[in-house]
């Protein structure tokens, strides 16, 4: 019961936070130079419409009056958000923003979630080994691999992999998330094409985030190794495998929060990778929205990122109270 009350409070606070960020982005986005409605209006005039026709067309397309004062637009916007309506896109000629975002999200989720989980698992394991064997060559090589991969920018890694595996050795296909000749659906050729196209972008993401996980885990493990209870378990003759379990369990705690937040930030997409490998994910969407001054799409995308980060934060807190008894009440 107490947990439910706490959870309820957290969710309420989360909603307030989402609205606060939504307000902030609403004004921030409108501070950008350029006016898309005016641009569309001018375009329609150039196509030969009369000013009245053009005005009606614009109003119909976007569902709001471009001459309303900002505060009225803001109130309307907040009201719409509370009704889970994110408005219509400007650059996609009036398609509801929510549809566009939901269409792009799966691509990003495939790409980033797979890469995130792969890099987390491999990075954490490598970090444990690197810390325990830090005086041996194995440990040095692992640490070095982490530092180097952490240092290579994502777009360099992406271009490098693309060059090596799609040009030098043509092992994987380049560009597009799947072979356009196939019909999307639950059939084998489509799924295998999907997987083959995903290998390089996922590998790029995984390789460039591996170093961060590995180095963080290594330093966390080294801290735990200095703790009294590790020496104590050695002195009590606890088996090595159990000791490693003790160490890993204690060392991984600080990484949980970072991992949960990364899942939240996932909805920001991975702009460089999506751009290089031509993935129609959220990163490309955001880029497109910014380039075409598509305010509703931009605020919608930002709102999604905000909500995802806040939700994953609440989730991380609760997960923490499960894995760490000291946080429990």
């Amino acid at each position: 019961m107490q947990i439910l009350i706490r959870l309820g409070k957290r969710i309420l606070a989360g909603i307030v936070m989402v609205l606060a960020v939504a307000s902030f982005t609403f004004f921030l986005v409108r501070l950008m130079p350029g006016n898309p409605v005016a641009a569309k209006y001018n375009e329609l005039i150039l196509r030969g419409m009369t000013p009245v026709q053009a005005m009606d067309q614009v109003r119909m397309m976007y569902g709001f009056m471009p001459h309303q004062p900002l505060w009225q637009q803001y109130l309307l916007y907040i009201n719409q958000i509370l009704h889970l309506n994110l408005g219509r896109s400007i650059s996609y000629d009036g398609v509801p923003v929510i549809h566009i975002i939901l269409g792009a999200a799966p691509w990003t989720i495939i790409l980033v979630l797979t890469g995130l989980i792969a890099s987390f698992v491999v990075g954490v394991l490598a970090g444990v080994i690197a810390a325990i064997k830090r005086t041996s060559p194995t440990g040095s090589v692992l640490s070095l691999s982490g530092s180097i991969l952490h240092g290579i920018p994502q777009f360099v890694m992406g271009l490098f992999l693309a060059y090596v595996f799609t040009t030098l050795w043509v092992i994987f296909p380049f560009g597009a998330p799947y072979n356009a000749a196939l019909t999307p659906g639950l059939n084998w050729p489509f799924i295998s094409s999907l997987v083959r196209h995903a290998v390089l972008p996922v590998a790029t993401y995984a390789l460039s985030s591996y170093g961060g996980w590995m180095l963080t885990m290594k330093s966390s493990v080294i801290t735990v190794l200095g703790d009294d209870f590790i020496l104590a378990s050695e002195v009590r003759g606890i088996k090595m495998s159990t000791q490693v379990k003790y160490i890993a369990h204690n060392a991984i705690l600080p990484l949980f929060t970072v991992f949960a937040l990364s899942i939240g930030f996932m909805f920001g997409g991975s702009i460089f990778i999506e751009d290089i490998f031509d993935y129609p994910g959220l990163g490309n969407l955001l880029l497109h929205a910014i380039n075409s001054r598509d305010y509703p799409l931009m605020t919608g995308a930002f709102l999604l990122i905000t909500a995802a980060v806040i939700i994953s934060n609440i989730f991380a807190d609760f997960l923490y109270s499960v894995v760490d008894p000291r946080i429990r009440r």
Partner: peptide
């Protein structure tokens, strides 16, 4: 031999257990 034949009580026994 550790634990089975030789018992050891720590100076910092305060923190000699896995907190989790």
């Amino acid at each position: 031999a550790h634990g089975r034949h030789l018992g050891f009580v720590f100076q910092a026994s305060q923190n000699s257990l896995n907190p989790l």
